[in-house]
Amino acid sequence: MSDATDRRILRQLLADPDVSNADLAERAGVTSASLWRRLDRMREAGVIQAIETRIDWRKLGYEVEVSLRFTLDKTEPRAFDDFIAAARLVPEVTEIQTFLGSVDLRLSVIARDMAHWQQIYRESILTLPHVADSDALMLVSNIKNVQALPL
């Protein structure tokens, strides 16, 4: 579906999501009209889903990031739905993922400091429904965080 020109456009867009369309067209070596057609086609095909804003939570005072892994009580038919609905209501939960295997779900949670983390854990995490087992991993450093595919 995509050709070398599409991949060139995507590479440039990934490198600088704030680039203007005129600059993007120039960097990708296409006309503005061609760029528009290609971007529209890639959006319609679902290749480009959204241009996102990434927030550095640490710069906003959130110094703690915890990855929580959960195994749910699967004897409860609504375990996944109830858990996910409750987790979505926790403002500090930035990501919810489901898995196949021994771990059912993973939450990413941010907190300002350890006292705030303890408050979130006691008031919000421990009250999540249908938890059979959980495990917490505190982020120490982020070595690689790439959202892009090698195009």
Rank of each mutant, 00 (worst) to 15 (best):
L100R: 13
T94V: 08
A85E: 15
I84N: 01
V103F: 12
P77Y: 12
V90C: 00
A79Y: 13
R78N: 14
L89R: 15
L105Q: 05
T71C: 03
P91D: 06
D81G: 03
F70I: 03
D82M: 10
E76V: 11
A86Q: 08
E95I: 05
D104F: 14
V90A: 02
G101K: 04
T94M: 05
A79V: 10
A86C: 01
A85I: 14
L89I: 15
S102F: 15
E95L: 06
A87S: 04
E92D: 13
V90G: 02
T71D: 04
R78A: 06
T98Y: 14
G101A: 01
K74R: 14
E95T: 12
D104Y: 14
T75Y: 11
L100A: 04
F99L: 07
F83H: 07
V90I: 08
F99S: 05
I84W: 05
P91M: 08
E92F: 12
K74L: 14
T98I: 15
T75V: 08
I96W: 10
L89P: 03
F99A: 04
D81F: 08
F83Q: 03
L72Y: 06
T75K: 08
T94N: 01
F80V: 07
D82K: 07
S102D: 09
A85S: 07
R88M: 13
Q97R: 03
R78G: 06
F80E: 06
L89S: 09
I84R: 05
D82V: 07
T71N: 02
E95R: 11
A87I: 04
A85G: 07
R78Y: 11
E76W: 14
